[in-house]
């Protein structure tokens, strides 16, 4: 029994799972480059982009996106919801839990809910 527990513990510890990072920290690392330090779509990369990144503080626009849509576009990228290829898929970078956290974090930036501000 003891041996089995040790084996199980070693197996779990050897899994390549990354620690769950906070949405704020993930936003700072992955989203700010295009969506901006203030989340307003004015990131350092945007000058030459043909399509400008979404302003996450825009309550009117953000309230038209459901949580499921936000999850999908973060995980699978802009093309998955018929938007720009410039929004990449983050599914290999963020876990599903982190993406769900991010969708909720976006709600704090826009101070809005789906279907109404």
């Amino acid at each position: 029994m003891g041996n089995k527990l040790i084996f199980l513990a070693l197996f779990v510890l050897s899994l390549p799972a990354m620690a769950r990072e906070s949405a704020k920290d993930n936003y700072r690392t992955y989203c700010v480059q295009c969506h901006g330090m203030a989340g307003n779509g004015k990131g350092v990369n945007i000058r030459d982009m043909s399509v400008q990144p979404r302003d996450h503080t825009d309550a009117k626009a953000m309230s038209t996106r459901s949580d499921d849509t936000l999850f999908k576009v973060i995980k699978e990228g802009g093309l998955s919801i018929d938007k720009s290829v410039l929004m990449p898929p983050w599914g290999d970078t963020l876990s599903d839990d982190e993406i769900r956290d991010m969708a909720q974090y976006l709600r704090t930036l826009c101070k809005c809910k789906y279907g109404g501000s």
Binding site: T29, V32, Q33, G36, M37, K42, G43, V44, I46, R47
Partner: peptide
């Protein structure tokens, strides 16, 4: 990169 940018008038710089 985020340590080397700052808000600018039109976008982060």
């Amino acid at each position: 990169y985020e340590d080397h940018i700052k808000p600018g008038p039109k976008r982060d710089v």
